[in-house]
């Protein structure tokens, strides 16, 4: 579904953000990308939809090579990639409905967009999505009147409105409190699975990544240092990704370990239930 080969990005400043990344996603799964700040996580997902122009390498979305597309063809390809941001990036002065419908901009003319004339099936899908993300009845609320968690729900609905083949998610929970972060992460992963859409999720929080993602990719200095299942993360792997640190408090205990740390066991059960 998504196939990235030898992706390199060198910024004009000479900074080598990506040094030949290879990543292949061939089933609808949530792939968490972890790594320190500056490891190239943001650059990686922005090179996929070319908000950042890659220096070399190939990005195949299904059968389309995104890296060689003309501006016009790139816009068509972007319609198939939904993006979710750390700062939500909603149009603050527009309503929830206007923001969700903006996910369909690639399919309507500018005149239609100006008059907010979207096809009826888009509107009914928008209502369904708002219900699904828990914002039933909020369609006429202005985005700047929402809380952080609610804004991210609108961000998710806007991305899904595109009916994307791929979700690009940049630090979805970094601006949220821990409880909201878990709720948003859970919603995001549920929806990705429901819609059968693979998702690349940049995330700082190793614990959240382990708890929700199907697969974890570790980036260090622009190259992939780890690619595997969540329970394969060991202190040695985290040392490879982030550098030396005491990881005993970070790594999620496997069920066999849970007897040792009673508090942690309770916490996990709570989050699984909530």
């Amino acid at each position: 579904m998504l196939s990235i080969t030898d992706l390199v990005k060198v910024y004009p400043s000479g900074e080598r953000a990506l040094g030949g990344v290879n990543l292949h996603i061939d089933q609808p799964q949530v792939v968490a990308v972890i790594g320190s700040s500056g490891a190239g996580k943001s650059t990686l997902i922005r090179c996929i939809n070319r908000l950042v122009e890659p220096t070399s390498g190939r990005v195949l979305l299904k059968d389309t090579d995104v890296t060689t597309l003309s501006r016009r063809a790139l816009r068509r390809a972007r319609r198939r990639m939904g993006m979710i941001f750390q700062e939500y990036n909603l149009v603050e002065r527009l309503t929830v409905m206007e923001n969700v419908l903006s996910g369909r901009l690639g399919y309507v003319s500018s005149w239609q967009a100006y008059r907010r004339k979207y096809p009826p099936k888009d509107i009914s899908r928008a209502f369904e999505l708002l219900k699904r993300v828990g914002l039933d009845g909020y369609h006429n609320t202005r985005a700047d009147a929402l809380s952080g968690g609610q804004r991210q729900r609108v961000g998710i609905a806007r991305a899904l409105m595109q009916q994307p083949d791929l979700l690009l998610v940049d630090e979805p929970t970094a601006s949220l409190d821990p409880k909201t972060a878990r709720q948003i992460m859970r919603l995001l992963c549920e929806l990705a699975h429901e819609q059968g859409t693979p998702a690349v999720v940049n995330i700082h929080d190793v614990h959240l990544a382990q708890g929700f993602a199907d697969r974890i990719v570790g980036l260090a200095d622009g190259v992939i240092a780890f690619d595997g299942a969540a329970d394969e993360l060991t202190p040695a792997v985290l040392n490879d990704i982030y550098g030396e640190e005491d990881w005993s408090k970070t790594i999620q205990k496997t069920p066999a370990d849970q007897g040792k740390g009673k508090n942690r066991g309770t916490l996990e059960r709570e989050s699984a239930a909530g």
Partner: peptide, 8 residues
Amino acid sequence: EAIEATGA
């Protein structure tokens, strides 16, 4: 950037 990413 977000609007650009929708293919607008």
